[in-house]
Computed example of a mutant assay.
Amino acid sequence: MTAPTTGALRTDGATLHYEVRGEGPLVLLIPGGSGGAAAFDGIADDLAADHTVATYDPRGLSRSPLDDPEAEQRVAEHADDAHRLIELLSPGEPAQVFGASSGGIAALHLLATRPERLARVVAHEPPVVEVLPDAADQRAFVDRVEATFRAEGLMPAMAVFAAGLSGPAGGAEGDGGARPGSGSALPPRAAARAERTMADLPYFIGRIVPRFMRYVPDVPLLKTLTDRLVVACGRDSRGELPHRAAARLAGRLGREPEHFPGGHVGLTTHPAEFGEHLRKLLRP
């Protein structure tokens, strides 16, 4: 694995840690869940053979501290962070963006607000549950996660969250696949990543989940931008909430979803196939 060049970017209310590999047109990779830049370690080097590949820790996670640690989070701020990275790394040239899960929601908002800066957006299983016919039930589910976290703490809230997504505990929101376990059995970078993922879970459950899963995408506007938008699902996650939401969004846009290898965390479980599939969707 090639060591990336790292940097820090000041934005409104946060300092973003970002990593860059390769040369060529910019591809910005936005992680989901409590995953950070390292969530893309399995695919970044291959993409960097003919692209500048950038990823980062979203604000409030890992190495991207907030100025106010208690600040509420908004999708619009996270999308603006992605825009600022594009302005820094690809001034004057449109970029391509891949967003996983909650990162896919940020990517959708970025496309809706800054379409002139984007050549293509691939949103993999963004949990935009407000597009579903049972959106009211999903709002109640998010309310339960938030209330459980406040009253009982992290692990009971994680159990409610995992049950509602009908996916494996801790893995269904695009955390990049890092799992708790014995850090001593992992390579140093992987061990550090696992530690960061666990440390970031309270922030993710307490402030990312409630805001991102209440996000309402601008479907009529996105429908005018489908020439540069790909909504994607995992081949193995049918029936799970993020898959249902993404497939429904694609249908509302008049498109079929693109299917990637694996499930919601196919990025981690099938990195070679996942990366190759993404490469085929990127514009030259």
Score class of each variant (00 low, 15 high):
residue 4 P to N: 04
residue 5 T to R: 15
residue 7 G to P: 00
residue 9 L to T: 08
residue 11 T to R: 14
residue 13 G to C: 05
residue 16 L to I: 11
residue 17 H to D: 05
residue 19 E to A: 14
residue 21 R to D: 00
residue 25 P to F: 10
residue 27 V to G: 02
residue 28 L to G: 08
residue 30 I to N: 14
residue 30 I to A: 13
residue 31 P to D: 06
residue 31 P to Y: 06
residue 32 G to D: 03
residue 33 G to H: 03
residue 33 G to D: 01
residue 34 S to F: 14
residue 52 T to A: 01
residue 55 T to C: 10
residue 59 R to D: 06
residue 60 G to A: 02
residue 62 S to T: 12
residue 67 D to A: 09
residue 68 D to A: 08
residue 73 Q to I: 06
residue 74 R to D: 13
residue 78 H to D: 13
residue 80 D to G: 04
residue 85 L to E: 10
residue 86 I to Y: 06
residue 93 E to G: 02
residue 97 V to G: 03
residue 97 V to E: 03
residue 99 G to D: 07
residue 100 A to S: 13
residue 100 A to Y: 05
residue 101 S to T: 09
residue 101 S to F: 04
residue 104 G to K: 07
residue 107 A to G: 15
residue 110 L to G: 11
residue 115 P to V: 03
residue 117 R to T: 03
residue 118 L to D: 09
residue 120 R to M: 11
residue 120 R to L: 13
residue 123 A to C: 01
residue 131 V to I: 10
residue 132 L to R: 08
residue 133 P to W: 07
residue 134 D to W: 09
residue 136 A to Q: 11
residue 141 F to T: 01
residue 143 D to W: 00
residue 144 R to V: 12
residue 147 A to N: 03
residue 147 A to D: 10
residue 147 A to G: 08
residue 152 E to T: 06
residue 163 A to P: 06
residue 163 A to W: 01
residue 165 L to W: 04
residue 170 G to K: 01
residue 175 D to F: 08
residue 179 R to D: 10
residue 185 A to T: 13
residue 186 L to N: 12
residue 186 L to K: 12
residue 187 P to I: 00
residue 192 A to M: 11
residue 194 A to S: 15
residue 199 A to F: 00
residue 200 D to F: 02
residue 200 D to R: 00
residue 202 P to L: 01
residue 205 I to P: 02
residue 216 V to Q: 12
residue 216 V to G: 07
residue 216 V to D: 11
residue 217 P to K: 05
residue 217 P to N: 07
residue 220 P to E: 00
residue 222 L to V: 08
residue 227 D to P: 02
residue 233 C to K: 14
residue 234 G to P: 00
residue 237 S to H: 02
residue 239 G to T: 05
residue 240 E to L: 12
residue 241 L to K: 05
residue 245 A to H: 04
residue 246 A to I: 14
residue 250 A to E: 11
residue 250 A to M: 14
residue 253 L to V: 11
residue 254 G to W: 06
residue 258 E to Q: 12
residue 262 G to V: 04
residue 268 T to C: 13
residue 277 H to G: 15
residue 279 R to E: 12
residue 281 L to V: 02
residue 283 R to V: 15
